[in-house]
Write a protein that binds this DNA or RNA. Structure first.
Lengths: 242, 242
DNA sequence: AATATAAACTTGTTTAGACAAGTTGTCAAA
DNA sequence: TTTGACAACTTGTCTAAACAAGTTTATATT
C-alpha cells in the first residue's frame, strides 16, 4: 500500500492536465475531497499543498483551490527530471550520441567550485553526450559520476538513460540537485559538436545531484545553444511573519 | 499571535545560517523540537518540511534532519525576492536609475505570450530602470504594472522599491511568479544603457507576478549583461509512486 | 568473536477533532 | 432599498494519538 496523499496528488494533477478541472475553476473543497477519496482532511491538504508548491493551484482562504496557468514542461525544464522522461512527455524525437566515455576519469573540480564542491581528485566515470533534436545537435551533456557511489556505469546506460539505471537497476534514491545557469562563449568542443560559428554563445547549466542520504554523486555540465535555450521557473513568495 | 511553524522555521533557518547547527550535523529530533519550542510534532514537521523544500536540510528516515550545503543567495537569485531585499542581504551597494516612467502605457503582450498571457491592450504603468552595481550598469528592468490592480505607481516607489510599495503601503499579498530565462542579442536600448558593444548577448528574464488571489498584475522584463548573469536553483526529485 | 534479537531511538503517514478566520448568501430590520 | 446580523460554507493552524518503517545500540545467544 502506498501513500494516500501522493495518490490524491497524482489523480488531481492528471485531472488538471486533462482539463477535468479547468483553468480558472475550483477543485472540490477539502471536505468534498475527504468523501471523494475516503481520506481525512489533513491527508487531502498535503496533496493540495504539493499542487500549490508546483504551480497547479492557488489556495484562497474562504474560497477554495483555484486552478491556475501551469507551464512547467517546456524544454528544457526547471527542476530535476531526466532527459528521457522529458522527451516522452513532450513527444519530441531525440537522439542521444555518446561521443566520449571514460570509465576511469577524474572530476574537473574547478568547474563545480561555485556550487560548493570541495572534493579533490575524485575518481569518476566520464560520459559526454550530444542531444540531437529534430536532426539538429543542440545540447552537450558532460556527466561525471562518482565511482565511490556508482562503481561502474555501463555504456548502454549512457546510451539509454542514466536515471533509469540509477533508480531502477541500482535502486538509488535521487533526492535533490543544485543547479547554476551562466552564459559563456562557445569553446572549440562546442563549435565542433554543435556546428557553431566563432563568437557563438552558450547557456551553461552546471548541477550537482545528491541522493536522499545527502551524498552528492553526479556532476553535470550541460551546454546549450543559446538560441534554443529556455528555462522556466515557478516560485512562491516567502512571507516572513517576523 | 502568529503562526508557530513559521516561527520555528525562521528560528531554525537563522541558526543554520549562523552555524549554531553546522553543515553535516543533525538538527534536534522532532520530539526534541516539541519540547524546545512547546509545540506538537506535526507543527515542527511543517517547519522541517519547509526547510527541506528550500534546500537547508535533507530529512533521512530513521536518522534525522541533516544540514546540507545551502547556496540560495547569490546574485541574481532564484525565487521571488525584491531587488532591494536582495541587495541588503548581500551587502551590495547598488544604485537604481529610473530612465523611463509612463503612467499611461500599454502592455507589450507579445513579449509575454510564451508565459501564457492573453490580455490585449491592457493599460499599465511603465517603469524602466537601470541597476548599477559597483558603479557599473549591469541590468535593465522594465516593469509593466496593471492599472486595473494598481491604479497608480508613484515615481518615488519606482526609485525606492516596488515590492515595499505593493506590500507595505497597498497591502497587496504577492503570491507567486512564473519566470522564463532566455538568451538574446543585445538591442540598441541595451547597448546604450549598459554601454555594450555590437554583438553582445543578454540574459533575459521575463516574469509574470500574481497576487494570492491569483490575479496577475506585474509583468517584468529583466535584461542582464551576459557575463554578469548567474542563476541558481534548488530542486527536489519528484518520486511518482504510481 | 560473530551473530541474532530486541529495545529505543529516529522519521513517515494517517486520523479525528477543535478553533480561527475569510467569503458568500439569506433574511430581517431600518 | 440599504444595511446589518447571521448561518453556512470555505481554508488555516494546531493538537494528541496511533502505527509503520528505518537506524542504532545494547544484549543475549551461538
Amino acid at each position: 500500500m502506498v501513500n494516500k496523499s501522493a495518490l490524491v496528488y497524482d489523480d488531481l494533477m492528471q485531472k488538471i492536465d486533462g482539463e477535468v478541472y479547468k483553468l480558472g475553476t475550483y477543485l472540490p473543497s477539502e471536505n468534498q475531497l475527504c468523501e471523494l477519496y475516503g481520506i481525512s482532511r489533513e491527508t487531502g491538504r498535503k496533496a493540495l499543498a504539493a499542487l500549490a508548491e508546483n504551480g497547479y493551484i492557488q489556495k484562497i482562504r474562504g474560497k477554495g483551490s483555484l486552478v491556475i496557468e501551469h507551464r512547467q514542461y517546456e524544454f528544457p525544464v526547471s527542476g530535476i527530471v531526466s532527459y528521457k522522461e522529458l522527451a516522452q512527455k513532450l513527444h519530441i524525437t531525440t537522439k542521444n550520441v555518446v561521443y566520449d566515455y571514460e570509465p576511469n576519469g577524474t572530476l574537473p573540480v574547478a568547474a563545480f567550485a561555485s556550487l560548493g564542491v570541495d572534493l579533490t581528485e575524485a575518481p569518476v566515470t566520464v560520459i559526454k553526450r550530444v542531444r540531437v533534436i529534430d536532426d539538429e545537435p543542440d545540447i552537450i551533456d558532460k556527466d561525471y559520476i562518482l565511482k565511490t557511489v556508482v562503481p561502474e556505469v555501463p555504456k548502454r546506460a549512457a546510451e539509454d538513460s542514466l536515471y533509469a539505471y540509477f533508480e531502477d537497476e541500482l535502486e538509488l534514491e535521487i533526492g535533490y540537485a543544485t543547479k547554476e545557469i551562466t552564459m559563456e562563449p562557445a569553446n572549440a568542443e562546442d563549435r565542433q559538436q554543435l556546428h557553431l560559428d566563432d563568437g557563438a554563445y552558450m547557456a551553461v547549466v552546471r548541477s550537482v545531484t545528491s541522493l536522499t542520504d545527502a551524498r552528492a554523486f553526479q556532476f553535470t555540465e550541460s551546454r546549450h545553444r543559446a538560441d534554443k535555450f529556455r528555462f522556466r521557473d515557478f516560485a512562491r513568495r516567502q512571507h516572513n511573519p517576523l
